[in-house]
Amino acid sequence: MPDPAQHLSAESTIGDWLDHPTGRTVLIDVLARRSPDARALYAIRMLPLSTLVTLSNGVVTPEFLDLMAEAANRLVDQPSIQPATAHLFPSAPPPAPNDWKEPLVDGRFDGKTVVVTGAGSGIGRATALRVAREGGHVLAVDLSTLRMEALLERNPDLHITGVVADISSQSDVNAIAVQARGRVDGLAVVSGIADDMVALHEVEDDLWESVFRINVDGPFRLSRALIPLMLSRGSGSIVNVASQAGLRGSIAGAAYTASKHAVIGLTRSAAFIYSPRGIRVNAVIPRPTRWALESNYGSLGGAGPLPSLSLTSPDTESAQIASPLTYLLSDDAANVTGAILPADEGWGIA
Rank of each mutant, 00 (worst) to 15 (best):
E134L: 00
P83Q: 00
V198Y: 02
S56G: 01
G186L: 07
A225L: 06
G124K: 01
I227Y: 09
G136R: 00
K260R: 04
F212Y: 02
D16W: 08
D172G: 01
D99F: 14
A84W: 10
N174V: 12
A5Q: 11
L129H: 04
A177H: 03
A322R: 01
E70N: 14
I193L: 12
P4S: 04
A255E: 09
S269V: 10
W291G: 15
N73S: 01
A69R: 06
R74C: 11
E317F: 03
A165I: 02
A5M: 05
T316H: 07
P97F: 08
R290P: 12
M1S: 15
R125A: 07
D106A: 15
V211G: 07
M68A: 09
D110A: 11
T117D: 09
M46I: 14
G135Q: 02
A333F: 06
T257R: 01
S121F: 10
R213N: 08
G249V: 04
G118W: 07
T267M: 00
G278S: 02
F64L: 08
A339S: 12
V164R: 05
Q244C: 06
V173M: 05
E317Q: 15
R133Y: 09
L207N: 06
K101P: 09
N296S: 15
D185L: 07
D99Y: 11
W291H: 15
N73I: 03
S121C: 11
L104K: 11
S35I: 14
P305A: 05
A72V: 02
S275Q: 06
I349S: 11
V263W: 05
A69E: 11
P90H: 04
T312I: 14
L143F: 01
T113C: 10
P4E: 07
D332I: 02
E209I: 10
A225I: 03
N240T: 10
